[in-house]
Design a protein around this nucleic acid. Sequence first.
DNA 1: GTAACCAGTAACCATTAGTTAACCGATAAC
DNA 2: GTTATCGGTTAACTAATGGTTACTGGTTAC
Lengths: 117, 117
Amino acid sequence: MEISIKQEATCEQELVAIRDSLEILGGKWKLRIMRYLNNHIDEKNTFKKIQREVEGISAKMLSKELRELEINLLVTRTVMDTRPITVNYAMTEYGLSVFPVTETLVEWGLNHREKIK
Amino acid sequence: MEISIKQEATCEQELVAIRDSLEILGGKWKLRIMRYLNNHIDEKNTFKKIQREVEGISAKMLSKELRELEINLLVTRTVMDTRPITVNYAMTEYGLSVFPVTETLVEWGLNHREKIK
DNA sequence: GTAACCAGTAACCATTAGTTAACCGATAAC
DNA sequence: GTTATCGGTTAACTAATGGTTACTGGTTAC
């Protein structure tokens, strides 16, 4: 009885945790952007470069998603003094903590593709 | 050069894999439902019970999400011969493969809550 | 006989998410 | 002087998500 109450409480907390995660990482693009940045961590990642490589995203969405990631301290934005001006986006230390999430999604997606064919 | 081409191709595949995953598991509710079912794998999980425990979901959404999960072979639906009739939802073997995804999200969400307070 | 439970569905509406296309100013290349 | 690049913004739109209320039909408990 005590065990099952504890189990219920734990499950409830887990579901809240998933909700919290999805509030910040959910949607069509954020995890793809994070994965891209993770895979190009030592490079300059400009707005245009990200847009080219995260296939299908529009400037409007990219701009919005990057702003939200920045607000949540997962990404930094740096205006570079080049001609023409470029803006560099980079993962923060904290942003690196998202890696396991994208990793499991990559693995599940690859496996799923195998399965359905 | 060859290495960077390979890296690019790999990254591209990874981003496609994430897109595929989110197509099936994305949205506000599916991963929460999957986690709930995972945590109650030996029990009868009726529609009403799931609705009570996945906090905030409406009958309409739960019905829609369960249908989609069923289509993708992650969940089974069984009408039980009880009075009144109940319907039991259960994870499939394949559904179990989603566990690592929910697990990383749970961990990230718990850690994030710690961090922002 | 009336109220409640179960597993939904239908209709209607509001909000959010996401797309498309045009446009901005600054600068550089031709 | 025209065109292109960069990092966006703006407006107008459609699609998806989600909420609310009411309803079904069969059954049981009071």
